[in-house]
Design a protein around this nucleic acid. Sequence first.
DNA 1: CTTGGTGTACTAGTACGAATAGTACACCAA
DNA 2: TTGGTGTACTATTCGTACTAGTACACCAAG
Lengths: 133, 133
Amino acid sequence: MWFRVDPRLPTPVYQQVVDGIKEAVAKGLLKPRDRLPAVRELAMLMMLNHNTVAKAYQELERERVIEVIRGRGTYVAAPSLLANRSERIVKMSETIKQLCVEAYYLQMTEDDLLTLFQDLMNEWKREKGRNNT
Amino acid sequence: MWFRVDPRLPTPVYQQVVDGIKEAVAKGLLKPRDRLPAVRELAMLMMLNHNTVAKAYQELERERVIEVIRGRGTYVAAPSLLANRSERIVKMSETIKQLCVEAYYLQMTEDDLLTLFQDLMNEWKREKGRNNT
DNA sequence: CTTGGTGTACTAGTACGAATAGTACACCAA
DNA sequence: TTGGTGTACTATTCGTACTAGTACACCAAG
């Protein structure tokens, strides 16, 4: 499977499934038109209840990450422009501000933070590149 | 006050108090040795129960953001090196990776993301500078 | 038309955390 | 002693996550 879930973590299990699949798609591990496992099948693999997986799939469909065709299955959606784009950018900005706050308490300078950011982004690009040849 | 809380948001109220105070300290709005309001006083101002504020103060003390002196009050702590530093950097890295994922769905390039990051960091530095003259 | 595999929609129940409310207590300075 | 502090405890309400089980609607293939 493309990700792991851990019921002991504070983040809800269904959210971990959502995040895991979103990350796999963004990385290119899953490509548009790829088929995802059935809710009961993925639930079996991950030792979860099928309702938990179904909740994750519904959230992913709401975010237009996947497309559901009743009676056929679920598929990775083609990239599309999102209606709530600006709203989501505001949330990203909030997250970045929190990173600045956290850096303060770790006694990192702004340059330290920028370097960390660039390093991780390059690592991300490399990972993505490996799946997009 | 240095921040706001909104019970309608999904993030717990006590966590909003924690984040708000941490941000005010990081920005220089609150400086080491500054005194914070008493739990019941802040609870009154924010329309919260005093137990909620107490929980926030306990969390802040655990993170060494403030110092509590029983019978006297709570004060902003002097900056100190934290024991769980590396653990917290791992969490920051996780957050940054999630930003990369989110950027993918917003059809932002890596350069777009880096620019956003730099812009917000500069804004943060400006805000901080205003309080540290 | 039937079958089997899909996602979906319910209900019921358990568990946990957040938050409020109220009370009592321990500490310390004036 | 007094008054202000943080702390500890119980009880209660509320919402969410999760499991479990069942039933249903849809669609392709036989």
